[in-house]
């Protein structure tokens, strides 16, 4: 016993070092962004306040280009609205379906505008912090987009802040498809370049060309069908040769995110309940 105590006293620095490293490594290897404690993340009260204060300054830096993006987007939307209005008008007289357009219950999605208060593109696992949380009805697994396309998925929510896992995170995975022929694969990031992601597991017989649009597949309940992710840049065969891995030029420029939209899917609870019921029945 005496020897043990002597040993501990003699090597207390070594011991302290080992204990600290074990704490750190446990944190590293048990870390799961979906079950992460809010306290050791950028969504806690202190770091959230800091980031909010800083983003008040940095928010001005990209205003010009964001404005241009928004104007462009606005123009496109306006055009779409006009086209739709015309379509409705033409079909009004003989169509039974006009209820679809007027029934408020069909507004399945609601978009909540939020501000990005912290963001990174330099790491292998990047995260984005938003300035709204559960108080504004945000929940984990809600999709996040900006005016150009898909940004990521909310992983964690505190009262006033929430953390997004963007495409630029090795833990991100999203079902995506080619817009023109609906062949789908799964989108991941290879950690190399914040401008590109990889669409894996695309069947060999799928035909595509550089510049083709990649959109969300709508198979998960996180994103609606058809939101733009990016365009095809180039492709390689995957190691087992039965699938293509396509390099995708992302539509969103992650280095200058300012304002984003969170997608609230109103029918999601219903879908969840139904799925839970089905799996119970099995």
């Amino acid at each position: 016993m005496q020897n043990l105590i002597n040993f501990l006293i003699r090597y207390n620095t070594w011991l302290f070092f080992v204990v600290l490293e074990i704490v750190c490594l446990t944190l590293v290897f048990t870390f799961n962004p979906y079950q992460q404690s809010i306290y050791i993340s950028s969504a806690n009260q202190v770091s959230g306040k800091f980031y909010t204060a800083m983003s008040r300054f940095s928010g001005y830096f990209n205003l010009r280009s964001i404005n241009e993006d928004l104007l462009e987007q606005n123009g496109m939307l306006q055009q779409k609205v006009l086209m739709l209005e015309q379509y409705i008008e033409n079909n009004m007289k003989d169509s039974v379906n006009d209820a679809i357009f007027t029934n408020p219950q069909n507004k399945k999605y609601e978009f909540v505008p939020v501000h990005v208060i912290s963001n990174s593109v330099t790491r292998i696992n990047n995260y984005i912090t938003l300035n709204k949380g559960s108080k504004d009805g945000l929940q984990p697994e809600m999709g996040v987009i900006d005016q150009n396309g898909v940004v990521g998925v909310i992983s964690n929510v505190s009262e006033n802040y929430s953390i997004v896992i963007p495409i630029l995170n090795s833990k991100f995975r999203l079902s995506a498809k080619l817009k023109k022929n609906n062949y789908f694969g799964s989108l991941v990031w290879d950690g190399k370049d914040p401008l590109y992601a990889v669409l894996e597991e695309l069947p060999r017989h799928a035909s595509f060309a550089a510049g083709d649009t990649i959109v969300t597949s709508g198979y998960s309940d996180v994103f609606p069908d058809g939101i733009i992710i990016g365009t095809v840049d180039s492709h390689t065969k995957q190691h087992d040769d039965n699938f293509y891995a396509v390099k995708v030029l992302l539509a969103v420029d992650f280095s200058k995110l300012g304002n984003v939209l969170v997608i609230k899917d109103k029918s999601r609870l219903e879908q969840k309940a139904l799925e839970a019921q089905t799996s119970q029945d099995k």
Binding site: V23, C24, F29, F31, N125
Partner: peptide, 24 residues
């Protein structure tokens, strides 16, 4: 020294959402 190293890394970790990496 060890303790300060841990605190320093941990503060950075909290802000970067990288628990344990900077601290280690």
């Amino acid at each position: 020294l060890l303790f300060l190293g841990f605190v320093l890394g941990f503060v950075i970790d909290v802000f970067c959402n990288t628990p344990g990496i900077n601290a280690g």
